[in-house]
């Protein structure tokens, strides 16, 4: 199966994110760049699918020419082909991004991608929409937030945990799926993989930017509050409180779990 995976180049940030002096962007002077964590899992999932079933993985991103670095990172993990939708650095809304991806998917070759994967949401803008909008544009079903994906013939079964239960979806291919971290353990790039990626060709397309109704005025950093654990107590004397916490988190064996008043 040929799988298209959509990723986004985002700065690698620590616990505190700095904003540029003009308040328009995240300060990346000392940052490295990566793809959003969910997307790395999407690539891994795609690679595993093609390892099982054959086919190819095309990884696509929309961004500055520098985003080719992330395409190569993903190719080092096993993606076969990279597509860069090159932009001038302006921010693209989810609708415009989805439209550009749909256009590109059409241009990329005779065979459509039966499966398009994306991350559930981007680490930076956190819009939660690109996958859904692609699906609507293509008239395909879309599963989001998927943490387990199985493919049986033309049927795709995806599941996720929601409010303590498993939600399972079953749809026919072609489909769009956005995945969440935890669906798999993304591999690290092997050295041979890294060298293959370095030599790989990247297809570059230049889509047209479109405005949407949501306009960024500026970014700022909220006044932070230092996080610190709640101290449950000292030594073995803290065990009752600890037990209550574990109970509250629902990790105690069922025989031990107490309903209700975890005061």
């Amino acid at each position: 199966m040929d799988v298209l995976v959509c990723v986004k180049r985002v700065p690698m940030v620590g616990g505190k994110v700095l904003v540029t002096a003009d308040g328009q962007d995240v300060d990346t002077r000392m940052s490295g760049f990566t793809v959003s964590p969910h997307e790395e899992c999407a690539v891994e999932e795609a690679v595993q699918i093609t390892e099982r079933e054959g086919g190819s993985v095309t990884v696509l991103t929309l961004g500055l020419p520098e985003a080719a670095e992330q395409l190569r990172d993903m190719m080092a993990l096993g993606a076969h082909r990279g597509v860069l939708l090159e932009t001038d650095g302006r921010e693209w809304g989810p609708d415009a991004t989805a439209a550009a991806i749909v256009d590109a998917a059409g241009e990329l070759g005779p065979s459509p991608f039966p499966l398009i994967l994306a991350g559930n949401e981007a680490a930076d803008t956190g819009g939660y929409q690109v996958g859904v909008r692609i699906a609507h544009a293509l008239g395909r079903p879309c599963l989001t937030g998927i943490k387990r994906l199985e493919i049986a013939g033309a049927t795709l079964r995806g599941s996720r945990e929601y409010r303590g239960a498993q939600e399972v979806f079953e749809v026919a291919l072609p489909a769009v799926v956005t995945v969440k971290e935890g669906i798999n353990l993304p591999r690290y790039p092997s050295l041979p993989g890294r060298l293959r990626a370095k030599r790989a060709e990247i297809t570059v397309l230049r889509p047209q930017w479109k405005a949407d109704g949501l306009r960024k005025e500026g970014l700022r950093v909220p006044a932070g509050s230092a996080r610190r654990a709640q101290i449950l107590g000292h030594g073995a004397a803290a065990v009752p409180a600890l037990l209550d916490v574990l109970n509250g988190l629902g990790v105690l064996p069922s025989a031990v779990r107490s309903g209700g008043d975890a005061a």
Partner: peptide, 15 residues
């Protein structure tokens, strides 16, 4: 320390 992804002296790798 807060801004660093790993630690202040573990700067982003330039591949």
């Amino acid at each position: 320390i807060e801004e660093a992804v790993l630690s202040p002296t573990e700067m982003p790798f330039t591949q």
